[in-house]
């Protein structure tokens, strides 16, 4: 991927690489609270079946994954672990923040122990709102992330604005 980052790769080859990257996202699932159940429904439920989008859930370790899905309430006690596991993931990596709690604190906006948004510690690519979001909303978040990956120029990956699933 070094060639892609430096921008020296011919455009068709970049497109090819991006296409292959977007259809093999290994999703490291960080199920914390209620959203974890909806995420499990999206992953294991035959009705939603996230694998048809090319997302492979349940990697053995964050070191093998491309996509981190933080679903649920992130508490201040949990934050160091979130940050550490995100740091263990290899680049290029993407983060989906699922649910109001991970986005901004949600119903615990005035709690003393809840981190008001996981984006305080790790950069987030897609925000999926809802308390909890339906599994379909997570699927749409994945589709939007794939669109971004398809058109991505690695050089300005970190300059992009986050996506919000409506």
């Amino acid at each position: 991927m070094g060639l892609v980052e430096s921008g020296k790769l011919p455009k068709p080859l970049t497109q090819l690489l991006n296409t292959s990257r977007k259809y093999s996202l290994w999703m490291y699932q960080w199920g914390l609270a209620c959203c974890a159940i909806e995420m499990a429904a999206a992953m294991a439920g035959p009705r939603f079946d996230i694998m048809r989008l090319g997302v492979i859930p349940l990697p053995a370790s964050p070191r093998q994954s491309d996509l981190l899905c933080v679903s649920g309430t992130v508490t201040d006690k949990m934050v160091p672990a979130v940050r550490r596991l995100w740091e263990q993931m290899p680049d290029p990596k993407y983060v989906i923040s699922m649910g109001s709690c991970a986005n901004c604190g949600g119903p615990y906006w005035d709690s003393y122990s809840v981190t008001k948004g996981v984006d305080q510690v790790i950069p987030v690519d897609v925000y999926v709102p809802g308390c909890p979001p339906r599994p379909e909303a997570l699927l749409e978040g994945v589709v939007l992330l794939q669109e971004r990956i398809q058109n991505e120029d690695m050089a300005d990956k970190w300059r992009g604005d986050p996506i919000v699933v409506s």
Partner: peptide
């Protein structure tokens, strides 16, 4: 425990 403590009784 305490990784999911959200402070319900105070809230």
């Amino acid at each position: 425990m305490g990784y999911m403590h959200r402070g319900y009784e105070k809230l």
